[in-house]
Design a protein around this nucleic acid. Sequence first.
DNA 1: GTCTATAGGGGGATAGAC
DNA 2: GTCTATCCCCCTATAGAC
Lengths: 196, 196
Amino acid sequence: MARSPKREKLLEATKELLWEVGFEAMSPRDIQERSAARPGSLYHHFSSKLALAGEAMREIAEQDVARINAFFAEEGPPLEIVQRYLELKRDSVRGCRFGRLVNEASIQHDELRGPVNAFFNAIRENLTLKLKQAKEEGALPATVSPEALAVSLLALIQGGAVLARAYQDETLYEQATQGALALLREAADKAHEQAS
Amino acid sequence: MARSPKREKLLEATKELLWEVGFEAMSPRDIQERSAARPGSLYHHFSSKLALAGEAMREIAEQDVARINAFFAEEGPPLEIVQRYLELKRDSVRGCRFGRLVNEASIQHDELRGPVNAFFNAIRENLTLKLKQAKEEGALPATVSPEALAVSLLALIQGGAVLARAYQDETLYEQATQGALALLREAADKAHEQAS
DNA sequence: GTCTATAGGGGGATAGAC
DNA sequence: GTCTATCCCCCTATAGAC
């Protein structure tokens, strides 16, 4: 692979801007200024702003999915891992860089939708697996559907980020997860009582 | 107040476009075409695109808050009203027109932030009140914080809308609420057992 | 592979006639 | 109150020298 300093700088700048302002609000000029690269470099390495953003999102998703898989591969009781995942520190006031894109028109393009869906799928699948294991161990009531609850928890994280941004206050995110964790603990308690 | 057909048409068109594409992606030209009004009309009635959008959001928020308050004022067991609120049909694939704005740069302007916060506050406050009542009746465990759980449920709704849009599939929203409702029922059961 | 210069089009808004 | 005509600026991209 030919090393191209400007190509890397362009990707770095694009990753930052996609998080800060999203795709539509990020102009090629913004990218060029932040990466100290000129139009010639941008359009030499990428065919369009969309292609550049697509590659940037692809790289971010690949990294994040790997980290998520690693987190859920840790040792420990399944339900505890789920709880720890919800309690992970997140920069919630900045919002989720994947979630923020779903409201842009450009999400219809495969280049952006692909990475976003890969990210959501990774979380959903890992959560579903752990919740299934928890249920088999009797750590969750029989009435609970692991698939549905996984979607609930993913929605909780996404919605928590929306509220933290709306109020510009991290504690909204924390309240959202704490409220859910309290319910989860009650359900787990009840399951254990019934098992014994 | 002088009746101005064009003023009303402009507001109607703006309300639609704010939902469909958001604030940044909506150009004055788009508004003009949809409302069959010309620049002269727009800038006669409103000082800027932001002022027009602000008035549109203010009217929507006012309406929605009234409907929310009416819904939560209905008769019935508090927890049941909360459950019914979560099960309300929503056009989730279109997303939440308030939630979608929090990722736009323009949310920093009071004209837009005000209505968005008014909407979120109304839901939060109504949910908190009903959950407090439910807890007092012994329909929720003592470990559950009504304030935190209200934020969780609001986050769930917002996140459910994000996922439904991401996957272009209403059932994601429904899974999110069903998973949460199952947990809520388990917690309610446990509270009732302990009370008896 | 990176640069400078430039193009076509649309964004947000204003002026002034009617 | 509504219209037409027009302005300036930035958005995205291309051409072609180095």
